[in-house]
Computed example of a mutant assay.
Amino acid sequence: MPNIRLLNSISERGLDRFPNDYIIGTDVQEPDAILVRSHDMYDYKLEQSVLAVARAGVGVNNIPHDRLAHSGTVVFSTPGANANAVKELVIASLFLVARKLVPSILWTNNLRGPDIEERIEANKKQFVGSELAGKKIGIIGLGAIGAELANALHALGMTVVGYDPFMSVESAWRVSNQIERSTQIDELLGSCDYVTLHLPLLDGTRGMIDSALFAKMRPGLTLLNFSRGELVDEPALGDALRSGRLGMYVTDFPNSFVLSLPRVIPLPHIGASTVEAEENCAVMAVEQLKEFIETGNIRRSVNFPDVALAFTGKRRITVAHQNIPNMVGQIAGALAKSGINIANMINGSKGSVAYTIIDIDNHADEMIDLSAIEEIAGVLRTRLI
């Protein structure tokens, strides 16, 4: 009877995926897992009982996932669940910029008096925009969102160039062969009318759009940021906008500094704020937790390797451990000494941690003592399923 604690409101469409014997709520005791959206968990006191944390969303900046990895707690996120929502908002933002919709709406909304039609006809030339068809856009980051966006913008008649030195095979399959690939970010920035960012925030990407890259941008370029505000160096952004080098900045992550700059279209962090995206994220997070609790399989974890073994009904042992030499050998040796026969085994590693799934032939009524494995130096957590 697994216990699931909720730290935020989670879509019922996702929660309905849990079997009836799961106990779900905000105040459940000794939770086996936690479901979260935006709650800051850095100062959250996590019970030893917690096997996993699943975020119904993509970014995990609110979860100390590195620290949790070293206690054997798996952290999941839901990449791709909100891809369509972000894709559609990026496309809408491109139309906002190209057709000067924001200033035209503001100007028109302030009109008063009996001669509105005449004034509109006399002044509408100031809002002449441009069409997206035939324009060139660069997409930096071709993950779930970037790949979907590339295909959609190509269908709108844009020339699409993608840059992603770490592009996965899965993403490569999703991207149309009509999408150009750039191997140099400088080349992309210097040739595009629009550039949109779709990258995770990592040590290597923080502040990556800096003064050196702004200097290489095509003059008048529009930059869109629906990933993380910290990807862009703010002092350099200010210089680029004030000098006119950067034509427009569209961001889903405004702050007081960004709002003080000219030619900024700010949005209130609504990239994934659709009913459908919230439902999709909740469903994916619940399915990940359910599979992990019931089978030990890990899919789409941010702090542990993805490791999955078809569940055949045999008893299963899972071991979260440090990624150091001879761990698998020691685990197998401990099982052999305990008279436990291995039927199947799989292991994977990610950075400094690793994860091993072992199916065993011992009958369900046999006592299984995991203490010999738990005593191995470097073992973080064990489970018997």
Rank of each mutant, 00 (worst) to 15 (best):
S182K: 09
D186H: 14
I358L: 07
W107M: 04
T26Y: 10
S9R: 15
P2E: 15
N255I: 05
I376W: 05
P262A: 06
T312E: 08
L199F: 04
L51I: 01
G378D: 05
Y42W: 15
N280T: 00
P305R: 09
F214L: 05
S260M: 10
E278V: 03
I34V: 12
N225P: 02
R300M: 13
L15G: 02
P103R: 14
D32S: 15
R5H: 06
S38A: 14
K100I: 01
N344I: 02
G204C: 07
V74A: 07
T274S: 11
K87H: 05
P219A: 06
M208S: 06
A215D: 15
V264W: 11
A56N: 03
I317K: 12
R17S: 08
V161S: 12
N177D: 14
I358H: 04
E234F: 13
G351D: 08
L68Y: 12
L89S: 09
L261Q: 12
I105L: 13
V302Q: 06
P262V: 09
T251F: 06
V307L: 12
Q184L: 10
L213M: 13
E121H: 10
L101G: 00
L68G: 03
N110S: 11
R13I: 03
R67I: 05
V283H: 05
R300C: 07
K135Q: 12
K136P: 00
R181C: 06
T183Q: 08
P262L: 08
A144N: 15
L246W: 09
T26D: 13
M367F: 11
N123P: 01
D233L: 03
V195T: 11
Y44A: 05
R55P: 00
A308F: 11
C192I: 02
V258C: 09
I145M: 04
R112Q: 08
S77A: 02
N280Y: 03
I185A: 07
T274R: 01
A215V: 02
K216A: 07
G348V: 01
T205D: 10
K337S: 14
E118A: 13
N323I: 00
A308W: 12
Q330D: 08
M248G: 07
A272I: 00
I4H: 02
T318I: 13
L188C: 12
R383A: 08
C281K: 00
P114Y: 06
A172F: 08
R228G: 13
L15H: 00
L267S: 05
F214R: 11
I265E: 04
V86N: 04
D16M: 09
N347P: 02
E121V: 07
T274F: 06
N341L: 07
G271N: 01
D32Q: 05
S71E: 13
K314A: 14
T78R: 05
L384V: 03
L96S: 10
V275G: 08
Y194N: 01
P266K: 13
E291K: 15
L149M: 11
A144S: 15
E118T: 10
P200V: 00
G138W: 12
M217I: 01
I357C: 12
N109C: 05
